[in-house]
């Protein structure tokens, strides 16, 4: 605990030798590490240029609102109609969270169990791959026929989309058998269960976080897609509804909310991965 060299420093300004906030993080964290105040400023500057530039150009060429609304109009719609959109955000979150919870739990358990039995794994893997590659959206009309226009078909679709994603990544993690470390644990008399919890599971953790992140994003896509197919609520339903009424500022406000939701999910798992799986430098 005493060493200071492991504590990352925040160094401002210097064009050379910048010290990262996220130095030595996992592969999961390698992507979006924002490294300095300069980079933050640059990112904000790019946003200002893009948004301001769009506003200017749309004004300049008198583009009609139904083709592309101005950023300022989108912002206004976001504020004035937020109370109308908010309940739909709630519905989407319910579908996403419950579907993802079900899918991820089943995926994790399946991954943990089948990787213990190589034969079962060989048999099951092609089917899981089939589930991963089949767009679960394709099943939504069928699910609606069976379960109606409520939450159920959407939750099932989200679970079907996210579960296999979590499973296939987690299985990759659990398969990373380090026979040396397992032999070590066995030499202390560790049981199969102890080996699982104390060696295999921690070793799989970085891949599990990757699976959760990808799975949750897939879940969000599927939830919104399912809402667009049928039913009277949810952010996806708003998209079809606003576009059919040519309320483009509101339409883009919903798109904006969806983007923010996606980023939020990504950042959440990024931070979790950084906290619990940062040992994998």
């Amino acid at each position: 605990m005493s060493e200071t060299d492991a504590i990352p420093e925040f160094k401002r300004g210097g064009a050379t030798g910048e010290v990262g906030i996220s130095g030595g993080m996992s592969a999961l964290a390698a992507g979006p590490g924002i490294r300095s105040l300069r980079e933050v400023l640059a990112i904000v500057l790019v946003a200002v240029v893009i948004i301001g530039g769009t506003e200017l150009l749309l004004n300049l060429f008198q583009v009609p609102q139904y083709v592309l609304p101005k950023p300022s109009e989108i912002a206004v719609a976001l504020v004035t109609d937020f109370h109308l959109i908010l309940p739909h955000l709630g519905h989407t979150l319910v579908e996403l969270l419950s579907g993802f919870a079900i899918g991820a739990t089943i995926g994790l358990i399946l991954a943990a169990v089948i990787t213990q039995f190589p034969f079962a794994e060989k048999i099951i893997t092609p089917y899981i791959l089939l589930l991963v590659t089949t767009p679960m959206l394709a099943l939504v009309p069928l699910l609606i026929l069976r379960f109606g226009f409520g939450y159920e078909p959407r939750i099932i679709a989200v679970a079907l989309a996210s579960g296999p994603m979590v499973m296939i990544n987690a299985a990759t993690g659990f398969r990373r058998v380090d026979s040396g470390k397992i032999a070590l644990a066995r030499s202390y008399g560790a049981s199969t269960l102890q080996i699982f919890w104390k060696v295999r599971a921690p070793m799989a953790l970085p891949m599990i976080f990757v699976g959760l992140m990808v799975g949750s994003i897939f879940g969000l896509l599927t939830a919104v897609g399912a809402e667009m197919v049928g039913g009277g609520f949810g952010l996806g339903n708003r998209l079809t509804s606003y576009s059919s009424m040519i309320q483009m500022p509101q339409f883009f406000a919903v798109v904006l909310i969806l983007s923010l939701l996606g980023i939020l999910i990504y950042v959440l798992f990024f931070l979790l991965g950084k906290k619990f799986a940062s040992w994998e430098a």
């Binding site: 030499s187 008399g189 921690p202 040992w279």
Partner: peptide, 15 residues
């Protein structure tokens, strides 16, 4: 429990 082992790889758990 009477036997301790050292392997060629240190086998420290990285986490």
């Amino acid at each position: 429990p009477e036997i301790g082992m050292v392997f060629q790889d240190a086998n420290l758990l990285p986490w």
